[in-house]
Nucleic acid binder design. Structure first.
Lengths: 108, 108
DNA sequence: AAAATACTTGACCATTTGGTCAAGTGTTTC
DNA sequence: GAAACACTTGACCAAATGGTCAAGTATTTT
């Protein structure tokens, strides 16, 4: 599996996207990250592992607690991939407006 | 499953991303879309169904052939979601450069 | 030293995913 | 009307996903 597969896959889940969003407010522990979600710690841990495998989350152990933080790089790669379609959807909009212009020609 | 789940999930696969990319060049039939990939038509069809379920691909039957085209809307939603992190990674870069500035203070 | 905290690991389970093959349907083409 | 074409569907399979629970480890706290 390549990087984009892992990143898109990690983001294809509500729980994990919420975790990413939650991490925007800064570093937090595994338990803090898990707490808002209606599942066991073990369950949440699996999600965190998916995020780490995708490189979206980095962690560091201090004493008995593990602190997690966002790594924005994979998100940037997603951004880059999706950006390629900018031109496409702009041209789609152009096509649409051209179509509408054309439609209105016959009128009045 | 919500729209983002489906879209991110659909894009979490090399074959499907290649199909999306391929569709940039315009409308194409199921078989044309399937042909570049080392799998049976049935296999490719499953991927196309995933893309359709995510709303990334729309299709229309003309005679015995089915023509597929891209719908950019779900990509736009992905773009929107990821864009929220712009501010974050910019601030990360800021933090990094501040850190580097700080490091270099002790020198020379 | 015992207890509580903060994970971590492994076994298990149901469902989904990504692929196969074989047979079926509807539309051209000959 | 028969054959070829372009899908479509359904049965099957192995592996991955998303969850559970129970037991284990390492680090504080008391």
């Amino acid at each position: 599996m390549n990087a984009l597969d892992l990143t898109f896959g990690a983001l294809a889940d509500q729980t994990r996207r919420a975790m990413v969003q939650h991490l925007l407010s800064g570093e937090m522990t595994i338990s803090a990250l898990a707490e808002p979600h209606a599942m066991t710690l073990s369950g949440a841990l699996k999600h965190i592992r998916v995020l780490k495998k995708a490189g979206l989350v980095r962690s560091e152990k201090r004493g008995r607690t593990v602190w997690c933080r966002l790594d924005p790089e994979p998100l940037r790669q997603v951004m880059d991939w999706v950006s390629h379609y900018d031109a496409f959807w702009n041209s789609q909009l152009d096509a649409l407006s051209a179509h509408l212009m054309n439609e209105s020609e016959g009128q009045s």
